[in-house]
Amino acid sequence: MSGVLTSLRGLTVTYGSGEAAHMALQGLDLDILKGERLAVIGESGSGKSTLALALGGLLPPEARIDGRIDWPGFAAPPRAGRDIGFVFQDAGASLNPVIPVGRQIAEVARLHLGLSRPEARDRARALLARVRIPDPDSALAAYPHQLSGGQRQRVAIAAAIAGEPSLLIADEATSALDTIVQAEIVALLDELVHAEGMTLIFITHDIALASGFADRIAVLHDARLVEARPAAELLGAPGQAYTARLLASHIGLDTPPLIAEEQP
């Protein structure tokens, strides 16, 4: 890890105005380091998705942004899709339903890397293999609906990294998947960012999921940053009551059952 990729100071995002004004993020101070895997944890309404959109410059026009987002890690302001790859929760909604997935991935490579059509198609095939889609050759021609949810998410990841971004933002990217597929996708993301030297921002409501691979964890609650610390420290000794509450709410296989064990 060397240096700061992006620096947020007093970042505030407001929707609406006057009486109806609603702050989705309030005074966020956070540095994101080059090459780190940062997990952003929060419940609904915490502002975690707003943070993702703000970083990518993808906030809707009616959102008002105050504070600063600086990018010391980039020579020029990064572009979403090129320098920042996104993976969202619902790959079915991110992918175009009427275009074969190979063309969708190739399009990103053509647009951002200036590849010719045949080159881009080769790259799409290589990316499908990279995200471990079985039989990438025939998958190139598949439409999103012909793939399972897990495979669609793999395709979305392939499209997200097709422009060779240095920052990958995964926003609840595994939340709609069953636990078995979720574990596979998390392992894939972890391996990809490691191999490609990408910075990963992994946004999730599941602190246990993040605990498995994040270098650092940032906890958001009610539009504010609660704490951001190395994962081991934060999990071992939460500095804030809210973080402790999140950890206590986790239900794992070793959580004592809530019922009396004997049969009724």
Binding site: T179, I180, Q182, A183, D206, I207, A208, L209, S211, G212, A231, A232, L235, G236, L247, H250, G252, L253
Partner: peptide
């Protein structure tokens, strides 16, 4: 069983 995310507290500690 294998896929359930575990809180990696002790290991990290």
């Amino acid at each position: 069983v294998a896929a359930i995310p575990r809180l990696h507290i002790s290991h990290l500690n």
